[in-house]
């Protein structure tokens, strides 16, 4: 668990991050989203103390980050950045193994870990291990950058627009990879993005930043359904396509077998209405009826999957 407690960073009298508090649960992805200059990077870098906060503190599993030497703290937290930051003079294997080497892992353990990660990112180790970053495509470089952040199996990973430089198709694939890998490893990830779609696709929770302030921190569905401010609504405005699609699709299309308790909705109700009923009632499954007869149920996960299919 990461607790960010009233953290503030002031540059030349102006706060870049203004009293932000949020708690990130272990094993989840939190997406920090906002326009350029809203303080996302500064917020992220205060967690591994690349930037020292002007006030407030960060606690990891209850321990303030100031209790450790910076170098020790950073070696425990994975870090991936836009433009990958790979070392151009080191091979792919050496880049990925950088933190394990700092931590003094034995050689063969590092080698095994590097191969494992390359496999995980669909880059055959025999073909990629000894290449140099300059010999990779942009997408491959970015994947190596993310693999490097995961190498020492950190419980927590910070990512600053890791997919920012990728074209949309590769980007979707990279996002899927990340989600899959995170679910397999159970790591806690904080990812910064300026793209609300990416935040909603990746985040278990989304934190929206505006001019240094945290304006909403909620699950993606709630961000879409109930934007807290004008600004959030505007940012979500760009992603209303899936919602529009949901409003066109009837529940009957994704109904699953078996009844559940609680209020019922009609089979011809739109998915959008079903979604808001879910959110209002706080349930993640609803009973579906047609002309008074139970025909099955619909789950929040299925609605979400359907929304994502329309992106």
């Amino acid at each position: 668990m990461i607790e960010i407690d009233a953290i503030t960073k002031v540059y030349d009298g102006t706060p870049a991050v203004d009293a932000v508090s949020l708690t990130v649960e272990t094993g989840t992805i939190t997406a920090i989203v906002g326009t350029s200059g809203s303080g996302k990077t500064t917020l992220l870098r205060m967690i591994n103390r690349l930037v020292e906060p002007s006030s407030g503190e960060v606690r990891i599993n209850g321990e303030p980050t100031t209790g450790l030497p910076k170098v020790t703290l950073r070696r425990r937290i994975g870090y991936a950045i836009q433009g990958h930051g790979l070392f151009p003079h080191h091979s792919v294997a050496r880049n990925i193994g950088a933190v394990p080497r700092l931590l003094g892992w034995p050689r063969d353990e590092i080698r095994a870990r590097v191969d494992e990660l390359l496999e995980l990112f669909s880059m055959p180790p025999d073909a990629f291990r000894d290449r140099y970053p300059g010999e990779l495509s942009g997408g491959q470089q970015q994947r190596v950058g993310v693999a490097r952040a995961l190498a020492s199996r950190p419980d927590m990973i910070l990512m600053d627009e890791p997919f920012g430089a990728l074209d949309p198709i590769i980007r979707t694939r990279a996002q899927e990879d990340l989600k899959r890998i995170q679910q397999a490893l159970g790591s806690t990830i904080l990812i910064v993005t300026h793209d609300m779609e990416e935040a909603i696709q990746l985040g278990d929770k989304v934190a929206v930043m505006d001019a240094g302030k945290l304006v909403q921190y909620a699950a993606p569905a709630e961000i879409i359904a109930k934007p807290a401010t004008e600004f959030v609504a505007e940012m979500v405005g760009g992603v209303d396509r899936p919602l529009k699609m949901l409003s066109l699709v009837p529940v009957s299309e994704i109904v699953e077998e078996g009844a559940v308790d609680g209020p019922a909705i009609g089979a011809e109700t739109s998915l959008r209405d079903a979604l808001s009923t879910c959110l209002w009632s706080g349930r993640d499954a609803l009973r579906v009826e047609r002309e008074g007869r139970v025909v099955g149920h619909v789950t929040l996960a299925a609605i979400r999957a359907r929304a994502e299919a329309h992106r």
Partner: peptide, 23 residues
């Protein structure tokens, strides 16, 4: 040194001496 590489080196926990000699 490319700024991103320097940033990554700092962020992964290299000491300033390690950054100097290794990067």
């Amino acid at each position: 040194t490319p700024p991103a590489a320097r940033d990554a080196a700092r962020g992964m926990g290299m000491t300033s001496r390690q950054r100097l000699w290794q990067v």
